Amino acid sequence: MARVDKELEQYRQLMTVPNVFENGFSLSTFFGVMFIALVMVPGSLYMELLAGQGIGSSAQWVTVILFMEIAKRANAKLSRAQLFVLFYLSGTIIGQGGGLLWTQFLVRSDAALGAGLSGAFPIWVAPSDPAAYENRTFFQAAWLPAIGLIFFRMFFGRLDNMVLGYGLFRLTSDIEKLPFPLAPVGAQGMLALSDDLEWKAQVQG
């Protein structure tokens, strides 16, 4: 008789696989993405340049809770799938970091100049020509190597994530059925928010 690990079974029973999967991308999530791009991302970049660190994962929860409150007052409904799409996209967009904005700040900072690193950065990091910074725009030929490197990293990063990350996840989750102890934490947080939204919608209805 096979030995049953009670702790392992407890983790496996925290979350159950849903019977129906819904499409979470809609007009509401589109406005959510626009809000993230126009409000949360500039705030994250400002915090990163000012304090040396970004908003972090709190921006994801702030975005989801904010749109939940808007949906309550507009008598609109946000499904679990829509909340998850907002949560995932906010983490993806804000998690990109300062990018070129941080790079151009670094290469011209007092610390870099004091260390004698002015002009020592390769062109695929930042332009060495001071004229590239006079127009205050990245849409110029001097920034093409740095922009090209960013697209290169994004493409192969996504490819690596889909092939190795998602592929190994399906292997360990669906085939080997290994537990992910910390995965239910975020998922149950999303479910708690969506259940609260659905309950209040039923009460008001």
Rank of each mutant, 00 (worst) to 15 (best):
residue 35 F to T: 03
residue 171 L to Q: 12
residue 106 L to W: 14
residue 38 L to T: 14
residue 141 A to W: 15
residue 169 F to R: 04
residue 65 I to Q: 13
residue 23 N to T: 14
residue 40 M to V: 15
residue 53 Q to I: 11
residue 205 G to V: 01
residue 129 D to M: 09
residue 178 L to D: 04
residue 198 E to S: 06
residue 44 S to Q: 02
residue 22 E to Q: 14
residue 132 A to D: 09
residue 96 Q to A: 06
residue 36 I to E: 09
residue 201 A to V: 00
residue 42 P to Q: 00
residue 130 P to Q: 01
residue 135 N to Q: 15
residue 65 I to E: 11
residue 8 L to E: 11
residue 132 A to I: 08
residue 127 P to T: 07
residue 78 L to A: 04
residue 190 M to P: 01
residue 147 I to S: 04
residue 94 I to V: 13
residue 180 F to K: 07
residue 167 G to N: 10
residue 69 E to A: 02
residue 194 S to A: 15
residue 201 A to L: 08
residue 164 L to F: 08
residue 132 A to V: 13
residue 68 M to K: 00
residue 17 V to W: 11
residue 184 P to T: 06
residue 160 D to I: 04
residue 44 S to P: 06
residue 66 L to S: 02
residue 182 L to R: 12
residue 16 T to Y: 13
residue 9 E to V: 08
residue 24 G to L: 06
residue 50 L to A: 12
residue 95 G to M: 03
residue 76 A to I: 09
residue 106 L to G: 10
residue 76 A to S: 01
residue 106 L to V: 12
residue 203 V to T: 06
residue 19 N to T: 09
residue 27 L to E: 07
residue 94 I to P: 00
residue 67 F to P: 02
residue 28 S to K: 06
residue 77 K to M: 01
residue 151 F to S: 06
residue 34 M to G: 05
residue 147 I to Y: 12
residue 141 A to N: 14
residue 194 S to H: 08
residue 159 L to V: 13
residue 1 M to F: 02
residue 77 K to N: 01
residue 81 A to S: 13
residue 168 L to V: 15
residue 43 G to E: 02
residue 2 A to S: 12
residue 60 Q to T: 14
residue 120 A to N: 10
residue 111 A to N: 12
residue 199 W to K: 10
residue 138 F to C: 07
residue 145 P to C: 12
residue 149 L to D: 13
residue 71 A to V: 00
residue 141 A to G: 08
residue 93 I to T: 07
residue 98 G to A: 02
residue 39 V to D: 02
residue 73 R to K: 02
residue 72 K to A: 00
residue 79 S to E: 02
residue 28 S to W: 09
residue 202 Q to S: 03
residue 95 G to F: 02
residue 47 M to W: 05
residue 85 V to A: 11
residue 85 V to S: 12
residue 57 S to G: 12
residue 75 N to F: 03
residue 76 A to W: 01
residue 173 S to C: 15
residue 115 A to R: 14
